[in-house]
Design a protein around this nucleic acid. Structure first.
Lengths: 109, 109
DNA sequence: TGGACATCTCAGCCATGGCTGACACATTCA
DNA sequence: TGAATGTGTCAGCCATGGCTGAGATGTCCA
């Protein structure tokens, strides 16, 4: 490794700051255990708040707080269930998830 | 959208918590603007601390702090330059970056 | 209609973590 | 050798953000 180190002895101080705003925003969301778990759970299909709260060992209002942030980011959206309207079912926005992954890949690929 | 909502009216409370520890750890690192920028910069080749600090408008010791965290995570490593040993050149670990992206894809794909 | 249930909102507390300043260390050069 | 330069480390301050508790809204059922 590191077989092709640059031969320059002088640093180039004209380096430009990269645009990583999207990647950083997504990563900040995924950096929380609850939110990352929610997105992983919703990958396999829709679920309601109480299901996810039970699975994660968190209170429902806490999970709801995190879902609000994911909603604002457009990563998930809520649908009220047809046969039992008390439950809010959340599903992942696959397009937004793909865009998020693409933004992260721009940094890590 | 949401054309195939589940017909179940009863939530399944036996949902298991997913393992997203790796993805969360990586995301927590990328959630900072300086660290995400560093990784993006190093994608295009090695650079020294002073170059990146100048590009990001941050102090060198601050960038050094962030590089230490990326080092601990195995995402970057430092090489002292051959012709001018004052400079620490950092390069990205492409394998670790690929693994990090794979962990994130496990959540977002 | 009233009670139970599922969810949402929000203010407040508190822990985590980023930035700073000061200092230490290593390397180069006069 | 001493000064200058590039980088690393660490304690302390402070802002950001997660969790909690209380209350409100909307839906179902007896």
């Amino acid at each position: 490794m590191s077989t092709e180190l640059p031969v320059i002895a002088q640093p180039k101080m004209d380096l430009a700051a990269p645009d990583i705003a999207d990647a950083q925003a997504v990563a900040a969301l995924l950096g929380d255990r609850v939110r990352a778990s929610i997105l992983r759970i919703l990958r396999d299909g829709p679920h309601c708040v109480c299901e996810m709260a039970a699975a994660l060992g968190e209170r429902e209002n806490n999970v709801s707080n995190h879902l609000a942030k994911l909603r604002e980011a457009g990563l998930v959206h809520a649908v009220r269930h047809g046969t039992n309207g008390r439950f809010q079912y959340y599903e992942r926005d696959d397009e937004a998830a793909a865009a998020a992954l693409a933004a992260l890949a721009e940094v890590l690929r």
